[in-house]
Amino acid sequence: MKSSTQYNQNALESKNSYILIIGAKSDIAKAVARKYAEEGFNLYLAARNASALDEFASDIKIRLGCKVACLELDILDYTSHQIFYDNLKEKPLGVISAVGYLGDQEKAENDFAETSKQIATNFTGIVSFFNIIAADFEERKSGFICGISSVAGDRGRKSNFIYGAAKAALSTYLSGLRNRLYESGVHVITVKPGFVATKMTEGLDLPKKLTGTPQQVANDIYKAQKNKKNVVYTIWIWRWIMLAIRYIPEWQFKKMSI
């Protein structure tokens, strides 16, 4: 009896906790923010030029009645990350990264600045930030960390392998982090979206049946976090598509255009 009261108490506390979302201007991040607000959490929304999030934040505040703070964060300004985190009065229950930069593969091949930007945005910056979070959560022995990676990281393809390589590195990092934090009770989730209809993919001709909406991705993330899933593909069919793609022998794969 006592333990169930205890549990309810914890559940109540967690509902008023903050979730920190970085890269919060993306469509997926916005859908995730709305989902967590609907579930009763408060939000820190961090991004570059965070004032662009003001209207979105007021919408969530008014309709869902939670607290929302928009915070300035440059993922490429590594030295600012610790200060950013120290400045959060109330530390978050969980951190979700939706930071991502698709970039231009062809440009990246000829211009190292572009390559470097893809790697730094999709990998280095997030690592810098998550290292700080991990240290704090490990000490507190609670919390969750969620990184949105990509199916593009599951195998390198000529159409976007710089982006893909950075995402592969992120997936590997998250896997290691999960391993490290397991004993502290901190859960790490790797999210691998396939095609998602967002601003980032606007104008691309995506197959309808394989393309998810930001809302679907957000629901999948929330469910995965609640059920302590480790790696989640969204929409679900991508787990099987990528399994098949990973099984194509390299001598065959190198000749293909997919």
């Binding site: 209207e55 979105f56 007021s58 919408d59 008014i62 309709r63």
Partner: peptide, 11 residues
């Protein structure tokens, strides 16, 4: 299409 512009700004 103006539908995505659907935020509540103040009440």
């Amino acid at each position: 299409c103006i539908k995505p512009k659907n935020y509540f700004l103040n009440f």
